[in-house]
Amino acid sequence: MEFLESLSSIPFYLLAAITVICSLGMILNPNLVRAGFTLIGSFAAISGFYFMLSANFVAVSQVLIYAVGIVLVIVFAVMLCSLKEEASKVKDYIFASKPKAAFSIVISALVFSVLSFVIQSQDWETITKLTGASKYANLVDMVDEKYTSQIGYLMLNKYLLPFELISVLLLVVLVGVIILSKKEINK
């Protein structure tokens, strides 16, 4: 029985390894286009976490928006800039300035240690019990398939104002990007 329980944690650690390795690979890979495609692996593994957390709709949107949309746009922009000479110039950027590399490693390690200290100092099991998530544990399986329809309902009722604001924001972004990227006409 314990063996079976330990077996159930394998997908989590597998996905975590893929996510962390792909993210680090994105930062350390000198080739920008390859770095962009490495990002797809990271985002796909994160969508696997969403499936494990029974957030099906969020997982599918993750694949659609991040793994395909944003990465593709970034990679196309990289290709438009055709940074062949540029890439070789900043190839060994990690070792280009050692103080900067040491500074970034120290800062990110500090942030991680502070965050993990805060996480470890909370008794999450008690909090989960207090908020009653375990009370609904058997109910969750029933709700599970209804999450997608519930999200649609919430978006058009309780969160209607932020939903509309997001659509206005996307319209503004669309117009702004067209204005920014169109060629200037010389008078």
Partner: peptide, 25 residues
């Protein structure tokens, strides 16, 4: 913890990158 680790990795990339595309990623 995984989320904190990913956030730190992103921060590391943000600080160490000299290429603006990598900063966005």
């Amino acid at each position: 913890t995984l989320s904190a680790l990913l956030f730190s990795i992103g921060l590391f990339g943000l600080l160490i990158s000299r290429n603006a595309f990598r900063v966005l990623m």
